[in-house]
Design a protein around this nucleic acid. Structure first.
Lengths: 235, 235
DNA sequence: TCAAAAGTGTTCGAATTACACCCATGG
DNA sequence: CCATGGGTGTAATTCGAACACTTTTGA
């Protein structure tokens, strides 16, 4: 019979895969681990869960500690619990991924952790099972972004269509036809065109857009493929 | 600075949401909790993770303990970690959901846990946050089954199209046009028609089908909606 | 013979794809 | 003036949804 016991107590940690987009490429924020074991190696930002905090709270705290940001997109990814994943001591880790506006981060830079952005395509080897966590996060983003408009979370308030397109192209490592891409986008009604243009990448300049926040929230849940009339589900 | 400490050790449990399909309705297997706290109330099957086992191993062990089954579909759902979720002691629970062939279970019945199947639409109140776990599992199944053929995991080796249809109708709580449903199904090429008919539900009888296992495995990953030509993704 | 469930096709509109040229402008 | 990236339209096809009658046979 199952019963409460002190024997199976263990450490529980949270690790965050933090994504950013610099306007051209998808990146991940890593820290140089400053303590034993594996000191000096690259790692995800993480920490142990405290007695009185929930998992989401712990993840937000850890994210805030490194980036100074609050209220950003943060989603639980997966729990990793291989008995030997941490060679020091049995530790379960709940991985979260965050999507942040990389420009907001840069203003908050915190050197304590020796944090650096890496291209998702050119990552150093990470400690423990952090490589697997990153892989899982990349897959999850692909999966989710195919059905929900989460990638907007990576963009600044003002962004251009070519930026958005290269973000999608980066995430899916593919080329997209720009006419069809724009048509799909505009048909969602999520974008509001601004007067201003971004001339940093071309002489003609690309119009800035911003997100229609209300429609974004309303349309965030929208999927289903195998079932006709998903709108009409009785609940 | 973060450092290893005994202070934040806590219990880590696994809870399983076990789904079955009796040919007409989607059901969940619950146990009557036989120990403190909340003894006598209905609960998900669960248990603590031991020092030397991974999360998946623990979940499989727990599932096997109740159902006698091995090698069934089991997927990690979510980690639940509200500090007060278990009133006795701080416990993190990693929830898993399982999809089993209900008929295989019945032969293995284990009375020790006072297990019973409940309609997903008529569930008793559960202990702790198990109600929320069940809700999350139902949502996850809807989500996933819209994109992947997981619901076959609930069916016996031989099944009929009307059974399959009522399974989908149950999961999505909706009516589906049978002609369109059959067309979609057959276009996947996953089904192999058998000679035999099931006459238990009609005089005419419905042909049995079985799953083409090879195609099932090959087609299991197949989704994507926002991105053209998902087949051509470079990886 | 008839009630009850199984099985079968067609038509229409919407969505997706493929595809190529002109525009605006800073250098 | 021209090189560079931004922006635009159409035709063909595929896909999804709506829709109703015939078949089988045990009771």
């Amino acid at each position: 019979m199952i019963e409460y016991t002190k024997e199976s107590q263990m450490l529980v940690a949270v690790d965050c895969i933090i994504f950013g987009f610099d306007g051209e490429n998808l990146k991940i924020l890593l820290i140089k681990r400053g303590f034993h074991p594996e000191g000096g190696k690259w790692s995800l930002m993480g920490g142990f869960i405290e007695k009185d905090e929930s998992l989401d709270e712990a993840a937000n705290k850890i994210l805030h500690e490194l980036t100074g940001l609050k209220g950003v997109y943060l989603e639980q990814l997966h729990a990793f619990g291989n008995p030997l994943r941490d060679p020091m001591e049995r530790t379960i880790s709940i991985a979260y991924f965050a999507l942040i506006d990389i420009h907001k981060y840069e203003r908050q830079l915190n050197d304590h952790y020796h944090a650096e952005w890496f291209l998702t395509t050119e990552m150093p080897n990470l400690i423990f099972d952090h490589n697997a966590m990153v892989e899982a996060a990349k897959q999850r983003i692909r999966y989710k972004a195919a059905l929900h408009p989460i990638l907007f979370e990576l963009l600044p308030r003002k962004f251009t269509i070519p930026q958005l397109q290269s973000l999608y192209e980066g995430v899916y490592n593919t080329r997209i036809d720009n006419r069809n891409f724009i048509r799909k986008l505009t048909s969602t009604g999520l974008l509001i065109k601004l007067e201003e243009k971004d001339k940093s990448n071309s002489k003609k300049g690309a119009f800035y857009f911003k997100l229609d926040k209300k429609k974004y929230k309303a349309k965030f849940q929208a999927f289903l493929n195998f079932i006709p009339n998903p709108e009409n589900l009785i609940s």
